[in-house]
Structure formats: C-alpha cells, structure tokens
C-alpha cells in the first residue's frame, strides 16, 4: 500500500488501542467480576481492589451439576457440527460443481424464520416419536442452524478450487464421492476448519431450542444460565461465573483458530 507518515502511524495506533479497549474491557470486567463475592459485584462505586475468590465457580460445579451441563453442551454442539458437516459437504460440492444456487437460497430461507416458530411443532413431533429431550432431538434441532452455515461456507471454498484438478480426478477413475473425499475436501482443509469452528460456536451459543426441548439431564450451559437471568436474579457473583463458564470455550476456540477464521471470514466464507 501507500507509504504512511509517522504522525499518521501514531494516530492509527492510538485508534487501534481505543478499539481494542472498547472490545476487551467489558469482557475483562465480566471475567474479573466472576472472582468477586456477590456483594462486591453490585457495590457502587465499583470495587477495583479485592481479593479474588473462586467460591462462585466452586458453587457452580459443586452445588449445581455444571459438569454435566458442560458435557451436554459439548455433546450437542459437537453432534450438530458433525451431522451438519456430513449433510452439508456433499450438498455444498453439488452446489459448487453444478453451479446451482437455489439450495443455498433455500438454506438461507430456513434461517429467516424466527426460532420460536419451530418450538411447538418440534416438541409435539418429538413427543410422538418418543425422543423428546434426548441428545438426538437436540442435535437434530441444532443441525437446522449448523447445516446451512456449513453449506454456505463450504460452497464458497469449493468455488475457489480449480475445476481441472477435479476433472483430472474423474479421468483417473475416481467416482464423484471419491473426488469429494480425496480431492475437494483435503484441498479445502481451511474451509473445513472454519466451518467446523463456526458451526460449533453457533450451536454452543444457541439457547432457544434447548430452553424448551431439553430435559434436566440434557440441559446445556446456555439454558442452565437462565437460572440466573430474568426475574429470579439473586446471586450476581454466580451469574458472572456462569456467564464466564459459558463464554470461555468459544473464546478459547476462536483464539486458537483465529488464523483460519480471519482468513476464512475475510476471503472466502462470507463473500456471498
């Protein structure tokens, strides 16, 4: 790019710093507050100096089944990510290879419906099938949101692949499935990473379906956090800890996958 003068460089850095602070300060406040006793969380003016305690976390994991909730979240998010990919990869390849755009439009259409629309019909259907509140049911519902995202991301990554490579593969005697598995998917490894990470996080974060459709043994973290939200708020320290436990895994995953995510998001994924 163009040469940048010293003064402008300094000004840019100051802006970088301000933006970083705006983004980070609330999150840091959240995490730090989770180590305060409840009374310190709600004291005004805010307390900056305090002896950190881990009581809030001890309570979550000892008095409440937070271990189970965490495991449930992992199972549901993991299951729906895998199922979503299994369904989306062949479809994304078809969309890209045969240059058809209607499947992505349909996938986007399903995303336009308000989540509440599905709740009652699903509950009734799952009850009749006898799978209400099971991991299976929750994974299926979450796949409804993960699959379209995987489809969009993978289709745009497949679009970037040189067609000749795959045509060569077919000449070499690969079946269409073989081309996908042996050529397209390995070449789109960054796409697979982006899609896995983003759909996992999307599924991890989503609460509305599980709020109604999970049972106590299959309750994920998002829904468990509702014990601390709404009218019944009493323990602010635990609320902060619950929010932190909920937010940490996506943040950590994002941090480790950041290289692919930034690339994926900026170059391929959401090119639309």
């Amino acid at each position: 790019m163009h040469h940048i003068g010293k003064a402008r460089k300094a000004a840019t850095y100051i802006q970088y710093l301000l933006i970083s602070l705006l983004i980070l300060v609330p999150v840091v406040w959240l995490v730090v507050s989770s180590f305060k006793p409840s009374s310190a969380v709600v004291s005004y003016p805010p307390v900056f100096k305090f002896t950190p305690i881990i009581d809030n976390y001890v309570q979550l994991f000892k008095n409440l089944p937070y271990m189970l909730y965490t495991l449930n979240s992992i199972l549901i998010a993991g299951g729906s990510t895998i199922l979503g990919l299994l369904l989306a990869v062949p479809a994304a390849f078809a969309v890209s290879w045969y240059k058809k755009s209607w499947p992505t439009s349909v996938a986007l259409l399903a995303r336009m419906a308000p989540g509440g629309l599905y709740l009652l019909p699903w509950y009734i259907i799952f009850s009749r099938l006898g799978i209400n509140g099971t991991y299976l049911a929750l994974i299926l519902t979450h796949t409804v949101i993960t699959m379209p995202l995987s489809l969009l991301i993978m289709a745009s990554f497949f679009d970037e692949l040189p067609r000749e490579l795959m045509e060569c593969g077919m000449v070499d005697g690969y079946s269409l499935g073989g081309v996908i598995l042996k050529i397209a998917v390995p070449l789109s490894a960054p796409g697979m990473v982006v899609s896995t990470v983003l759909t996992f996080i999307l599924s991890w974060n989503y609460f509305l379906f599980a709020l109604v459709l999970s049972k106590i043994r299959t309750t994920p973290l998002t829904v468990a956090a509702f014990k601390f939200v709404g009218e019944g708020v009493t323990d602010w320290g635990m609320l902060m800890a619950a929010a932190t436990v909920l937010a940490i895994p996506p943040l950590v995953i994002t941090f480790f996958a950041q290289k692919w995510l930034v690339q994926g998001l900026t170059y391929g994924a959401v090119k639309g």
């Binding site: 980070l24 999150v27 974060n205 601390f228 930034v262």
Partner: peptide
Amino acid sequence: LLSPFTMPPVAVGMM
C-alpha cells in the same frame, strides 16, 4: 475482533 460475535448471546446479555 473475533471475540464479541463468537460470545454466546446469553453471556453477552448477562454481561
């Protein structure tokens, strides 16, 4: 920049 929008809305709301 990646962190805010990958945070769960429930946690963001509580925060």
